[in-house]
Write a protein that binds this DNA or RNA. Structure first.
Length: 103
DNA sequence: AGCGTGACGAACT
DNA sequence: TAGTTCGCCACGC
């Protein structure tokens, strides 16, 4: 089922994010040639491909972890990232530039 | 069909 | 540096 919306594109893109890496809403938006960074966030929130799409690997462009609608909220997101080797301090990703996956 | 909200981002004050 | 405003797209009411 393909949708003409950004949703499907976003999901396909975030599936490519390797483990132990993160990306930003801005990166995805730029890759899709769109300024609707908000729509990217909406796609994550909606994401029907739940465990198939690692939306927890998406952070804000300023290095902040951002938000999370899953169980436990942002705290849960941080734990998942830490499990993958990404260190988060005070909702901020350490070595942000190094773990950032660029498209 | 229209308005308000939101897992954002860049610019402005 | 921090707080506010505008832009952009999808979704709920």
């Amino acid at each position: 089922m393909k949708e003409n919306n950004l949703n499907e594109k976003v999901w396909q893109l975030m599936k490519k994010i390797p483990r132990g890496r993160v990306t930003t809403y801005g990166m995805i938006g730029r890759k899709l040639r769109t300024k609707a960074y908000r729509a990217v966030g909406q796609a994550c929130k909606k994401n029907p491909y739940a465990p198939h799409v690692p939306c927890h690997r998406i952070v804000e462009s300023n290095g902040k972890v951002g938000n999370y609608s899953g169980r436990g909220g942002v705290a849960r997101k941080i734990e998942l990232l830490k499990k993958e080797g990404i260190k988060v301090k005070d909702k901020r990703v350490e070595n942000f530039e190094k773990v950032l996956y660029k498209f």
